[in-house]
Simulated assay, not measured.
Amino acid sequence: MPTPLSPEALRRAPKVVLHDHLDGGLRPQTVIELAESSGHQGLPTTDPVELGNWFRDNANSGSLVRYLEGFAHTCGVMQDEAALVRVASEAAQDLAADGVVYAEIRYAPELFTEKGLSLEQAVEAVQEGFRQGEAASGNRIKVGTLLCAMRQNDGWQRIADLVVKYRDQGVVGFDIAGPELGFPADRELPAFEYLREQNAHFTIHAGEADGPESIWRAVQHCGAERLGHGVRIAEDIKDDQVGHLAAYVRDRRIALEMCPTSNIQTGAVASLAEHPIKRLADLGFRVTVNTDNRLMSDCSMSGEFGVVVDQFGFGWDDLHRFTVDAADALFLPLDERKALIENVINPGYADLKA
């Protein structure tokens, strides 16, 4: 009979992460130690348990703006190469310990240049950290990098240039992050046109703090291959009648990078019971489960699996499907995605379901 969906079994399940922010996943103890060594001021506490609770409580405000305030501290301690190497290495190790076999981790290089690092130095330090973390985890995980432009800032092209420059060194794609409302995805269209010309991949945060109009711009104007969150696509579905935009997203198999705990914290949905993940899955959308910010949301991939299992009654077949859909949406060559699914994911779930 199938293995019960216990916390331990969920940790053993092979997982794929499409949406995880590097600067939102630090260990509290690491924040404290890096603040001390770098001279960063203003931490609310130097007790790691209390600091973790502070990040979580601040994130539970129901506001994306408040949710983002904790990043002043995490980014504040990530301003030199040694710190970036450490944080990236620990991120890979922590995800591997939670059963993640492949993760695409994203960050905005411009956030790490306040003390003189160049964009290139920031990227190279993070890449070194990921490689160290993979090795330290016994190569049980592979990490790909997404570079983010901040949508409230100008200069998206320079980040797109970095994606192309470093794509043979583990950078697999581009994203825009930051406040969605008021900063549409098509504000700097030439960056996306350049990425397409260069055969580069990109996802776009859309449908989190703004509604279907934001998703439409991301998909139809920019050509997004995936949607960061995308939770508000449900507003284009009435009584199971799928609207034209929602049908386009579904029928083109555009993956939804959903982050259940974070979606509640930022106010994208009012409660877990109202989260549309099951409805969208039942209607055939390419749904995936992700962490977003492990420190801010006090979450893990196995924990997020547990959340949706408890709330919606998902079983091993559902989690298997979400994981395969995530793997198939990775910004990797087809043969690598097939090998990951056939050699790692399918056998892992077969054992759990046997």
Rank of each mutant, 00 (worst) to 15 (best):
P4A: 13
H19R: 04
D20Y: 03
H21R: 06
G25M: 01
L26H: 01
I32D: 00
I32N: 00
L43Y: 07
N53G: 11
W54V: 06
N58M: 14
N58Y: 03
S63N: 12
F71H: 02
Q79L: 11
A82T: 09
V87D: 00
A97K: 04
A97G: 07
V100T: 08
V100L: 11
A103E: 04
R106D: 03
Y107L: 08
Y107P: 00
T113Q: 06
T113V: 14
E114K: 13
A122Q: 03
A125N: 04
A125W: 00
G129M: 04
F130W: 04
Q132W: 08
G133T: 04
E134P: 04
N139V: 15
M150R: 11
M150L: 12
D154I: 15
I159V: 12
L162F: 03
Y166H: 11
V172K: 08
V172F: 07
G173L: 07
G173E: 01
A177F: 05
E180T: 07
G182L: 15
F183V: 15
P184Q: 13
D186Q: 12
R187N: 10
L189R: 09
E193A: 15
H205M: 12
H205C: 09
A206E: 00
E208R: 03
D210P: 02
G211I: 10
W216F: 11
R217A: 10
A224D: 01
L227E: 00
H229I: 06
I254T: 03
G267I: 03
A270W: 13
A273Y: 09
H275I: 12
T291W: 01
R294F: 06
S297T: 15
C299G: 07
C299H: 08
D318W: 05
F331P: 01
F331T: 02
A339P: 02
P347T: 12
G348W: 06
A354W: 06
